[in-house]
């Protein structure tokens, strides 16, 4: 009996040894792929950013970025992306909250509806807004019929922000919603039992618990907003550049070293931003959930 058991254990060990070999190599193609097509391309960005056309080391590209022109573009991109993110949060937070309060069946339908526009290509979504906002578009022909002066929206920064909010709003709603559905309802009950009113529950229980969702929502809206080039071209009327437009222009002009330098700076700034957000969220979590 004992010998049999021993044999079995040995056999098992042998088999699991074979299995672990399979397991070890299962991830190998992916690791090789990641090095070749994720890490090395990023090294190329740095390499191109700090070299000239003959691949000699230079700081000219980075210096050009700190010229007046690019700094202005960069500042505008940050500003518009921040405004769009803030508006998304303002609109999206209550939406996520209300949806999480609905019955499970209704929740499922509402979430499908929120995600539905995301299935439409973002070029078409943006383009639809161009049709709506243009000077001869729906809004203005409607206003004209009412006898009100037409408004000029297309080609302004507001139009670009509207486009960003529209395109990326679901990215704000989804993570907040998913955090809120995980909220333990006994906590809310306990808070009201202990004398919190509706506002107190919101401030002391719901908002602190939804912070992780809010943070991923903010990054998911901010990152595509700051790097967009199509929205600004279509809704900004090509009148002002964002950092994405600048990168595209350099790419089309075959000035790859400048395109790389701009991408490099964008990457560094986003990394710094994420680092700050991470630190901030860590501290928050510690504070709220001791």
């Amino acid at each position: 009996m004992n010998a049999q058991k021993k044999l079995k254990a040995e056999e098992k060990a042998l088999r699991s040894g074979g299995r672990s070999l399979l397991q070890k190599f299962a991830a190998a193609p992916h690791i090789v792929w990641s090095v070749l097509f994720i890490i090395i391309p990023l090294i190329f960005v740095v390499y191109y950013a700090f070299t000239d056309r003959d691949f000699n080391f230079t700081l000219e590209n980075i210096k050009a970025f700190f010229g007046e022109n690019y700094l202005l573009i960069f500042w505008r991109s940050v500003k518009l992306a921040l405004i769009a993110t803030f508006i998304c949060l303002l609109i999206g937070y209550p939406a996520a909250y209300f949806i999480s309060k609905a019955s499970p069946k209704k929740q499922k339908i509402l979430i499908t509806l929120i995600m539905l526009p995301m299935w439409m290509n973002f070029l078409i979504r943006t383009y639809a807004w161009m049709v709506i906002l243009q000077d001869t578009g729906i809004i203005n022909s409607f206003l004209g019929k009412l006898g009100i002066d037409t408004i000029h929206i297309i080609g302004t920064e507001s139009a670009v922000v509207i486009g960003m909010v529209y395109d990326f709003l679901p990215y704000m709603i989804m993570p907040i919603y998913s955090v809120m559905t995980k909220l333990d309802h006994r906590l809310i009950e306990a808070a009201s039992d202990l004398g919190c009113n509706g506002f107190g529950v919101l401030r002391r229980v719901i908002i602190p618990h939804s912070i992780p969702g809010v943070i991923s929502g903010i990054t998911m809206v901010f990152v595509p907003s700051i790097s967009t080039f199509y929205i600004s071209q279509k809704l900004g009327g090509g009148k002002f550049y964002l950092i994405g437009d600048a990168i595209e222009t350099q790419f089309l002009a075959n000035n790859l070293h400048m395109a790389a330098a701009l991408s490099f700076v964008l990457m560094v700034i986003l990394l710094a931003g994420m680092f700050i957000v991470d630190r901030f969220s860590d501290r928050n979590e510690g504070g709220f959930m001791p």
């Binding site: 097509f37 994720i38 090395i40 391309p41 960005v45 990152v223 991408s263 964008l266 986003l270």
Partner: peptide
């Protein structure tokens, strides 16, 4: 996770450069 975190434009540019 890098391609998920990076803006698409940087993923595109980096691959194109290589």
């Amino acid at each position: 996770n890098i391609p998920m975190m990076n803006p698409d434009i940087i993923t595109g540019i980096s691959l194109m450069l290589m």
